[in-house]
């Protein structure tokens, strides 16, 4: 069984931020780059599936430049066999459809049985790349999934809805699943895997065709401080904090 896992780099921004000169991205000096948490859960899910299936391959793919390269090396340290980076003229990272179109190029050359993505990127959270990619590839998409298992060419899993509702479903492979954050605890790779990830040869694929971009990110700005709320800090230690909270509770309950 061959599982392709799409990973992306996300940014954790500091309280004070500055934007790049074009106003469309965070200045990297004010952010910490990490592999998207849900994507690591997708990698873990893929590794377990392939192990249970008695063999196969987990291949990673990411769209972008240095950020994608870093995300792939971090995720490779969990143990996947290899990684592919997709980049080329016309790819718009701020447009999830463009990213999905770029990923499709890799699907076409790898022909996986299953594609996994994280449910959403933790920083910009559009929940769109997976469903768009499945539509382009022409396979069924199961969003917000966990507990994946396969028998022959059928995939069984749970999908989550709001407020704790869970639906157990099955779908024929090939298919695409967006994996829920916290679906599992991603492993720490071995020292050997970490060294291998560092030195891995990551091939670069250029998409031949991309869907037209119908949206444009025109500008970003720092959100108004506290989203219109102004923070009052309670001083005086835990007992003063508890007393104040109790007052607020009584007021709200009255």
């Amino acid at each position: 069984m061959k599982v392709l896992v799409c990973v992306t780099q996300t940014l954790e921004v500091s309280t004070y931020i500055e934007l790049t000169p074009d106003g469309c991205a965070i200045d990297p000096a004010f952010a910490t780059a990490l592999v998207n948490e849900a994507d690591l859960c997708a990698v873990e899910e893929a590794l377990v599936l392939v192990e249970a299936d008695g063999g196969g391959e987990v291949v990673l793919v990411s769209v972008g430049e240095e950020g994608a390269e870093q995300a792939l090396r971090s995720a490779l340290s969990l143990g996947p066999e290899r990684a592919v980076r997709v980049w080329g003229e016309g790819v718009v990272l701020a447009d999830t459809r463009s990213v999905a179109g770029a990923l499709l190029a890799c699907i076409e050359s790898e022909a996986p049985d299953l594609v996994l993505t994280g449910v959403q990127s933790s920083d910009t959270g559009a929940q769109s790349v997976g469903p768009a990619l499945a539509a382009m590839w022409g396979v069924a998409c199961v969003p917000v999934g966990r507990r994946l298992s396969t028998s022959d060419s059928t995939l069984r899993l749970e999908r989550e809805f709001e407020a704790g509702l869970v639906e157990r479903v099955e779908v024929d492979l090939p298919a695409l699943v967006t994996v829920q954050v916290g679906a599992n605890t991603p492993r720490y790779g071995s020292f050997k895997d970490k060294m291998r990830a560092k030195k891995a040869d990551i091939s670069v694929v250029a998409p031949s065709t991309l869907p037209p971009s119908r949206i444009t990110l025109t500008r970003m700005e720092a959100a108004p401080t506290g989203s219109g709320r102004s923070l009052e800090l309670i001083e005086g230690g835990p007992s003063a904090v508890a007393t104040r909270i109790m007052d607020l509770v009584r007021e709200a309950q009255s």
């Binding site: 959270g125 559009a126 769109s128 790349v129 539509a135 382009m136 969003p143 037209p212 949206i215």
Partner: peptide, 24 residues
């Protein structure tokens, strides 16, 4: 609404009809 039910098909709808999609 930006919900699990809508997000499950909105991007596919955008692709199918060649329309821009903005979520959340």
């Amino acid at each position: 609404g930006f919900t699990i039910r809508s997000s499950a098909f909105a991007a596919a709808l955008g692709h199918k009809l060649d329309l821009g999609v903005i979520t959340d």
